[in-house]
């Protein structure tokens, strides 16, 4: 059912900008990256960032962004997604000092955000799948989300973020998912963003 609706919508969408979703587990730097892209291209950020996981609990959108590279222009909407995890526990928030009731409310919102992000997999035209390069990429979330995107044949650019961190090991990420272009960056420091932009345009602008 949703298939048919989705097909109809994508027919109309072809006439508009494409939607690029920023996906990944919590705390890998999706919002930091989205803010960096948004500020580079429009001068404004689109979301708040925190060490407390699941800061982004709703899809945050910035429309009509434009990237140029090598005489190609890509017009797109950027959608910063809530971080996807298989478990949301309010105690992950209380250990950052949040009090229990607020933490429980945050847990509910985070869960809802995950459902929204998953539903949106039907709507996005392309994805930036963000990894923390200091962490092991072989997790349920990463494998499942990537597998699903691949099955839908949605174009992907893998972003190995936090290369400024100790023990950053982007090579392991590349080895894990060699079938997609990978760019290693630090969204926080702004390192290598040009390469990311070039790769995105190259992959998505026809």
């Amino acid at each position: 059912m949703r298939n048919l609706l989705a097909r109809l919508f994508s027919f109309f969408k072809k006439q508009q900008d494409i939607s690029i979703g920023v996906y990944g587990p919590p705390n890998v730097g999706k919002t930091t990256l989205a803010n960096r892209i948004s500020s580079d291209l429009t001068g404004e950020e689109l979301g708040s960032v925190s060490e407390i996981p699941h800061e982004t609990r709703e899809i945050q959108k910035k429309e009509r962004m434009e990237l140029q590279a090598n005489a190609n222009t890509l017009s797109f909407n950027l959608l910063d997604m809530p971080g996807i995890s298989t478990k949301v526990d309010y105690r992950d928030f209380t250990e950052h000092g949040m009090e229990a009731d607020a933490a429980k409310g945050r847990a509910k919102e985070a869960t809802k955000g995950i459902v929204e992000a998953i539903k949106f997999l039907e709507e996005v035209d392309a994805c930036l799948v963000v990894f923390d390069a200091t962490e092991d990429p072989y997790t349920q979330v990463n494998i499942t989300v990537l597998g699903n995107l691949e099955a839908k044949q949605i174009p992907i650019v893998i972003v190995a973020n936090k290369i400024d961190g100790d023990n950053a090991d982007p090579a392991t990420i590349e080895e894990a998912f060699p079938q997609h272009p990978m760019v290693e960056i630090s969204a926080k420091e702004g390192t290598n963003m040009e390469q990311l932009y070039d790769t995105v345009v190259h992959k998505l602008a026809h």
């Binding site: 949703r2 298939n3 996807i84 995890s85 298989t86 478990k87 949301v88 526990d89 309010y90 105690r91 229990a100 933490a103 429980k104 847990a107 509910k108 985070a110 869960t111 995950i114 459902v115 998953i118 997999l121 349920q140 979330v141 499942t144 989300v145 699903n148």
Partner: peptide, 24 residues
Amino acid sequence: FDLESIKIEEDGVYAINLRRLLEK
């Protein structure tokens, strides 16, 4: 709810079955 893809284990703790959530 949501066809067993989300389970509330206790107040404030949610277990999310990604595979089920992704399945149509």
